[in-house]
Design a protein around this nucleic acid. Sequence first.
DNA 1: GCTGTGTTTAATAGGTCTATTAAATTTGGC
DNA 2: GCCAAATTTAATAGACCTATTAAACACAGC
Lengths: 202, 202
Amino acid sequence: MKKTSLEEQILQTAEELFLEKGFDATSTTDIAKKAGCNQALVHYYFRTKENLFMQIFAKKQEMVFSCLKLKEESDFQTALNDFIDAYFELLMKNRKLPFFIINELIMRDDRRQYFRKKVIESPEYLKYYGVWNTMLQKEIAEGRVRPIELSDLTLHIVSLIVFTFISLPLYSDFFEKDETEIATYLNHRKEAIKEVIFKGIS
Amino acid sequence: MKKTSLEEQILQTAEELFLEKGFDATSTTDIAKKAGCNQALVHYYFRTKENLFMQIFAKKQEMVFSCLKLKEESDFQTALNDFIDAYFELLMKNRKLPFFIINELIMRDDRRQYFRKKVIESPEYLKYYGVWNTMLQKEIAEGRVRPIELSDLTLHIVSLIVFTFISLPLYSDFFEKDETEIATYLNHRKEAIKEVIFKGIS
DNA sequence: GCTGTGTTTAATAGGTCTATTAAATTTGGC
DNA sequence: GCCAAATTTAATAGACCTATTAAACACAGC
């Protein structure tokens, strides 16, 4: 029936807890307790907490990365619009993802090096950057977009999107919003961000 | 000469370490070691780690808050420009501040309640929100700014500014930037943010 | 020089955490 | 039903962390 159920269970529980509280604040005892097994079992299957964590971190990092792999559309504006949609869609389903990644990258040097190697310096990443840049330069040359560097545009967009999700726990807490209100809020934010970006680059 | 030197020293060292690594990752042993005293002395002066931390957190929170208290200018656009300048100036001198505050607010419910009580629900904060809103509505009514909610505009600006500083360790690490390059980068970002905001709301 | 007060230290209690070890238990193949 | 391998547990080593306690030290005022 449930083959190697506990190994799966541990991995899944660890994912929840690491995303919720981060690496430091999550103990293997916590994971075992929530997964319904002995703490030693966590080490039996994954040997170290670091191992277990890295399996999850690599997966989540890949999720963030995958959003960059966007279909090359003819129209820059459409591509950009789709990109924002895709990113928002991903993060609406994984609200804790931005803070999780950022937090681990800031706190730990080795995680930063790992991310750099796997994402920033990957040929794929560099290729996509080139594609986007070509499209942007064409837009600028043809006067549909004001002169702006891709690095700035990217950081604008990432800032606006990511910070929305990083600050989400504060929003829901400070203003006592329930689940449906949050969903409405997020959709509203998505459109507001598109508006300020598209107006801001034209 | 150096009256109650060690108490001062402990407070100062604690500030550095808490800002650098956060509450959880900083031990009273770390603080004592760096301050050059016995670990028990930290508890002698501040009793608990939490006490010590809260003195620092309250101060830092107040710094963030103080930026909202902007002189009321006649011109909305100037006021907004000055606000961005002030915020950037503060954070350029306190680069770790944004992540420090955000991190503690996200990680701990009680910190969030404290912040809410002291900042979000303070009469001052509400008053400033009202003043800004009046100015914004006037701009919109007179056609100088497109219809936009103050909450959205605020979140746009805060996202763009705060994320610049949150992601700064990644920027300097990934692209191997030195101190002067970082200063240049930050000034560049400030202007780029102003540009996208001002174009984005007109 | 003694005394009392404030400062600093060493020592330690009591807790949690990661990781390991050895023993118990389960399971599948024959 | 039995054996070997895989799974799960209890127990524990060793490290570190917060907070307290009691003792040592410094020094001001007399």
